[in-house]
Design a protein around this nucleic acid. Sequence first.
DNA 1: CCAGGCATACGAAACCCTTCGTAAGATATG
DNA 2: CATATCTTACGAAGGGTTTCGTATGCCTGG
Lengths: 128, 128
Amino acid sequence: MPDETTFTERELDVMSILWRLGSGTVSEVRAELPGEPGYTSVLKFLQILEEKGHVRHEKEGRAHRYFPTVAAEEAGRSALGRVVDKIFHGSAELALARLVEERPLSRGELARMRRILDELAAEEEEEQ
Amino acid sequence: MPDETTFTERELDVMSILWRLGSGTVSEVRAELPGEPGYTSVLKFLQILEEKGHVRHEKEGRAHRYFPTVAAEEAGRSALGRVVDKIFHGSAELALARLVEERPLSRGELARMRRILDELAAEEEEEQ
DNA sequence: CCAGGCATACGAAACCCTTCGTAAGATATG
DNA sequence: CATATCTTACGAAGGGTTTCGTATGCCTGG
């Protein structure tokens, strides 16, 4: 069974930073974490994430550099699926309605979002 | 401080059922929960949710009927905001791209989703 | 080569979540 | 009114998460 990509609160904080930076050492990740956790706490988070298979590391000088092994896209798909199922009864439409009112969208972003749906509709048309 | 509407795994299971049914007694909720939890477990979930202010109850016969005090829309907005922030670096566009590929969309649902964005774009146009 | 300092490893404390067992309260029926 | 039954109330066990303290390992500069 391919284990569902789900993260605890703190694990998600750490993964979020790794996805944004691409990779990170304990110090780098720690600098971005809210709440000023201790150095060894951050190390432990990364060790647990590695044990669970969500990150890997390479040696770099005397430290370790950690890389995500699961892409943000995959984790995002999984998270959105859970939200849609549990909160919106499986309706992507309802989810979109909340998504667009959740924060202000720039004109450009809205245009690109419309294009995503336009292209999807065109594909469906085609393979009718 | 308005407490962030966040739920644990099991709490979300229960809230999901209450949102879908509108309300529920312990027995009704229990019948919908996966994993066949014990009766008193479900009771405890509801009591904890009430303590946290996420549900309230009314007396009905000898039992209690529980109602959500937080709307699915509000919880959904909050959950989507967290996903967009933590996983998609604040990009609603990236979130939409994953949302539409996460499950098959019916022709009608896609059309309604396009309409949501069309109307939003029209509004922006207008208030330029 | 040796020491100072940075990094990892390990384990444990504190806390929260999940689950249920037992006791006590209330309701309907004979 | 008594009792069987359904329901709530309370507390606690077990497991996972978060956090850090202490011990140990290892580059790097002098």
